[in-house]
Design a protein around this nucleic acid. Structure first.
Lengths: 147, 147
DNA sequence: ATTACTGCAAATACTTTGCATACCG
DNA sequence: CGGTATGCAAAGTATTTGCAGTAAT
């Protein structure tokens, strides 16, 4: 709650309607959670925390909702670690840093990423490993599409 | 086999012994496969292909061996896609590109990565999404370590 | 002999699916 | 009323673990 950036439920509702997503209570609360907690939570973390407030919430709904948000582009999926997909409501271009000590995932500026391993980002994190993953359409598939 | 870069089993054996890894037959063959097939294969692909030649091979051994190689730093793990960890025997700094059409994973030069989305890399692949994942020790954990 | 590699089967963890129920316009 | 969201339980998939057998030094 301390890091709630303070979008009202009405504002969140508008965000959803803009993307033609019916603003059900569960969807609003899940989006609110993601907007408020910029910690890149997993499905399980979101589920456990929202369950306190919404005891009837099921994990399936969390999965369904996040999948919907991702397909509409209002949330992005992070697979920085195998076996824990994380979600981020900030869809602007930025990189992510995972601490191997405490497990936390932090946002970092893209500019500070192509660094020598062993050095420190402008945010003060020491970089030991760097992976850059691109997705799109490969050379060959682009060619085939032209035919 | 067409893309076999041609390290002999003896050379591979030396690679393993350099890292204090006992060069068992299975380990040699798994490393050979990775050196020869720069397609970033999954455990399942490696297992299925090597099984043809080594019918007694078990998937557990493939898991064990890759884990060992990763821990020794002679192979890197790619989690470009959730639910399929891929392996790469090229541990030099480079980025990876996954085609959403054909599913192929290609190496790309790091220099061509911080590009506008929608543009094309120097390799000719059209980039639609870019994720940069860093790992290391965060600001706070670095501080704690100093105490 | 001792140590370590291997392989099977069971266990675990995460996610998806099918379907019945409940909700909302 | 009709369509959609929800939730439970079961199924599916990838990986890990425990342990016994086997090979190697």
């Amino acid at each position: 709650m301390s890091d709630n950036i303070g979008l009202s439920l009405d504002e969140l509702r508008e965000n959803l309607e803009k993307e033609c997503i019916q603003p059900s209570y569960h969807r609003l609360k899940i989006l609110e959670y993601l907007q408020a907690h910029r910690t890149h939570p997993t499905v399980d973390i979101i589920y456990k925390n929202l369950s306190k407030e919404i005891p009837t919430l099921s994990k399936t709904t969390v999965y369904n909702t996040l999948k919907l948000f991702v397909s509409k582009g209002i949330v992005q999926e992070l697979t920085i670690e195998e076996k824990e997909v994380r979600y981020d409501a900030d869809t602007t271009q930025h990189a992510h840093f995972k601490c191997t000590e405490c497990g936390g995932v932090y946002d970092v500026a893209l500019e500070s990423t192509i660094v020598e391993l062993g050095t420190v980002t402008e945010e003060g994190h020491k970089v030991i490993d760097c992976q850059v993953y691109l997705k799109g359409i490969c050379k060959d598939c682009l060619k085939s599409a032209q035919n």
